[in-house]
Design a protein around this nucleic acid. Structure first.
Length: 727
DNA sequence: ACGGCACGGGG
DNA sequence: GTGTACGTGCCGT
């Protein structure tokens, strides 16, 4: 028997556990009230307890000994068992009275699991747990799954909620017909009969699910896709700022007793089902919630779980959004990682070397955690952070290292098994990849002003150690006769032979694995187009195994139309045939030929609309754009069709007349395009030249020269002359 | 010239 | 329920 899913109903204060065994999946319910904690800070404890006991929604109170911050001694605090619906009002009132409040926004499901020592996908024997949360070898239930997708009639070209359902595909079954109500009823029937554990969709929360329930409601049908009456999301989604840009998260259509998983969600894409199950087990986050989260939330969950197990309460962070760094703080934070400007141009015999999980390893090796950096118990410690000279606790291992150490070890073990257990290599690869992402995000969280267990001094300390390690590596490389071409954060590009030796030496010296990522037959670092200096993260090259590595240029961007991507791929394809630098130079004229052919096709109007589409995420609503750009024009066009795009959602458009100030003329939404739609050839040609320039700029080819070459004003042999002269 | 707007990286 | 900051290119005013 396995714990497939678990959810909380705040109205009825009940936990429902969905237990799967050989015969099916059944709900087991129990009443459960979440707990909150209150510290009295100077007031009389018993008077406060008396007051809280009398508040509405409070089921009971008691006094417990807990730590109110990492590393502090346990003290007496009040614990109130609550109706979930009353928590926020009660907390606000007590906060206004000057009380400290804890565990306020802890999900009741996670509280419950932690208290019972349970976790998603855990195995039972009878009534008792027969599993271990952090086990590496565990049994996974045999899960049955079906893929669901809905096709709307697209009456206006673009899919809308007003379209009738054209067709529903449920795994191999196609449901279609004249009568929409019948289609919906048949879907319900098919799912009830097949009774799958998982329903896979492609972005089902964004379209398929809300659309299906909306159509069902129009016919007065109460659609049920879960194993019990569905609970629909009460909000239709929200936009939020993350990763430096606006994102949009639709309301989650999670089902009762059946897992609705989106195959294009980040966690599924990166970890697949094995990675997601592994992560659900160790974080204690149920599969359906987990599939809708970012790895940062998984990291937070691990930290919160560890803190709670240590008897530490989680402070309520209620004004999370209203905090901006001051200029001084920004100055401090700015002393980030080390960057060496790349040497622009073509290079041979280059090795890329890179420290594995540098920042997580630094946090573990140097015990970096909010309560250990600048701790008050060892102010005179000789263990100091380089450059900033903070003292670090020598007596206690911090929360962050205690969370990270098992993750690092788990990943190392999975990586080992990829090699030793080829039959399950793919599964272990997905699991280790998922863990890699947790490690990557664990660093950024330290400097994140909204993180529960973040602290800017930790962030600074980590980058300080990072700088020291990279500087040491550069010194060693220099002494061994390598030329340093470029370096960034945890990675160096060095010119010379025998980089393995350098890796071995530095691994031994730092205790962190320095890996030889690859040796390049040749490598081109590209200049910044505005000032000509070496651009960080813009380069391409061919490794010894023949694989092309490309970073930063147009073809790597998600908003680049296919025509541009195709051009760059074709040009680089030619260059990739070169075995060394001199062959590379000989290949350049061929890339001009490639450009000429692509340009001819484009200017002749032979490109198909699908290849011309720009797809971007909008950061604001249609009215909030200060400038009339392509995005604003496309948004207006969507709105004209009755479609409201939320900030963070993506739009698609083709440029039809880039200089036009009229939104209907400037761009065209591809679904609305017809035979009369004509793309802006001059503009796309300009983009084509720029994309070619991105690749060839170090060799003297500017956009203008490329234009002349394409149009045939300059002879090709002249450009050959230029090339050989360039080095 | 300068501000507005969007996207990247990792293995 | 939520990673930062920054580099880069291109566009509009």
């Amino acid at each position: 028997m396995f714990l497939l899913d678990i959810r909380y109903d705040p109205k009825k204060s009940t936990i429902t556990k969905w237990i799967k065994d050989g015969t099916g999946c059944k709900p087991v319910r129990e009443v459960c009230h979440p707990k909150i904690y209150v510290s009295s800070t100077g007031k009389d404890k018993h008077e406060l307890q008396h007051l809280i006991s009398s508040l509405p929604g409070v089921r009971g109170t008691c006094i417990e000994k807990k730590r109110t911050w990492l590393g502090s001694e346990p003290e007496e605090v009040l614990c109130a068992t609550m109706d979930a619906g009353s928590i926020h009002d009660t907390a606000s009132m007590l906060e206004a009275k000057g009380c400290g409040l804890y565990n306020i926004d802890l999900d009741p499901v996670r509280q419950y699991l932690l208290e019972c020592g349970l976790f998603p996908m855990a195995r039972f024997k009878g009534d008792s747990l027969d599993d271990h949360q952090y086990a590496l070898d565990y049994e996974v239930p045999e899960l049955t799954s079906m893929r669901l997708s809905v096709t709307p009639s697209r009456d206006k070209g673009i899919a809308t909620m007003d379209d009738t359902i054209l067709r529903i595909a449920l795994e191999d079954t196609i449901i279609e017909g004249e009568d929409e109500a019948q289609i919906i009823e048949r879907l319900s029937g098919e799912i009830a009969v097949s009774d799958p554990d998982i329903l896979f969709t492609d972005r089902g929360d964004s379209f398929d699910m809300p659309y299906l329930y909306h159509r069902a409601a129009l016919h007065g049908i109460e659609l049920q896709l879960g194993r019990e009456k569905d609970i629909l999301p009460d909000s239709c989604g929200r936009s939020y700022f993350s990763y430096g840009r606006m994102l949009y998260k639709p309301g989650g259509f999670t089902l009762a007793g059946r897992l609705h998983l989106d195959t294009s969600s980040f966690i599924f894409r990166e970890g697949g089902l094995p990675g997601m199950i592994d992560l659900a087990r160790i974080t204690g986050i149920p599969m359906q919630e987990l599939s809708r989260l970012s790895p940062g939330s998984a990291v937070t969950a691990l930290q919160v779980n560890q803190a709670l197990r240590d008897g530490v309460l989680v402070p309520w962070k209620r004004n999370l959004a209203e905090y901006w760094k001051t200029a001084l703080e920004l100055l401090i934070a700015d002393r980030g990682a080390l960057v060496i400007e790349p040497k622009v141009g073509l290079h041979e015999n280059v090795s890329e070397i890179d420290f594995a999980s540098l920042f997580p390893n630094i946090m573990v090796n140097h015990n970096i955690s909010p309560e250990t950096v600048l701790c008050s118990c060892c102010p005179d410690s000789s263990h100091r952070v380089p450059f900033v000279h903070y003292n670090i606790c020598q007596r206690h291992t911090g929360l962050i290292p205690r969370v990270l150490t098992p993750l690092i070890e788990r990943r190392v073990e999975y990586k080992k098994r990829i090699a030793t257990d080829p039959a399950r290599a793919e599964e272990y690869e997905m699991k280790q990849n998922m863990l890699k992402w947790l490690l990557v995000t664990s660093f950024g969280y330290m400097g994140f002003n909204k993180a529960r267990f973040g602290r800017i001094e930790c962030h600074e300390s980590i980058t300080a150690y990072g700088r020291e390690i990279l500087l040491l590596t550069m010194e060693m490389a220099d002494r061994m006769g390598f030329e340093i071409l470029h370096g960034i954060v945890d990675c160096l590009w060095v010119k010379g032979h025998g980089a393995e030796r350098l890796c071995e030496l530095m691994t031994r010296k730092t205790g962190i694995q320095l890996e030889l990522k690859g040796e390049f037959r040749w490598l081109v670092f590209l200049p910044n187009k505005s000032n000509g200096a070496g651009a960080l993260n813009r380069y391409y090259g061919v490794m010894n195994n023949g694989k092309l590595k490309v970073r930063g240029i147009e073809m790597r961007r998600s908003d680049t139309p296919r025509v541009i991507r195709d051009l760059q791929e074709a040009m680089l394809g030619k260059l990739a045939q070169a075995k060394n630098a001199s062959e590379f130079r000989m290949k350049i004229p061929e890339t001009i030929g490639v450009l000429r052919e692509h340009a001819r096709k484009l200017l002749a109007g032979e490109c198909i609309p699908a290849d011309l589409v720009f797809e971007t995420h909008v950061s604001r609503g249609s009215d909030d754009y200060k400038q009339f750009n392509n995005q604003a024009a496309a948004l207006r066009q969507y709105l004209h069709e009755g479609i409201k795009i939320q900030p963070g959602q993506s739009i698609r458009y083709i440029i039809t007349d880039h200089s036009s100030k009229r939104y209907q003329k400037r761009v065209k939404i591809p679904e609305l395009a017809d035979e009369t739609t004509v793309y802006d050839r001059a503009k796309y040609y300009e983009y084509l030249l720029r994309a070619a320039e991105s690749i060839l700029l170090p060799f003297g080819y500017t956009e203008r020269r490329l234009d002349e070459l394409v149009k045939g004003k300059v002879q090709e042999n002249l450009c050959k002359y230029m090339v050989t002269d360039n080095f």
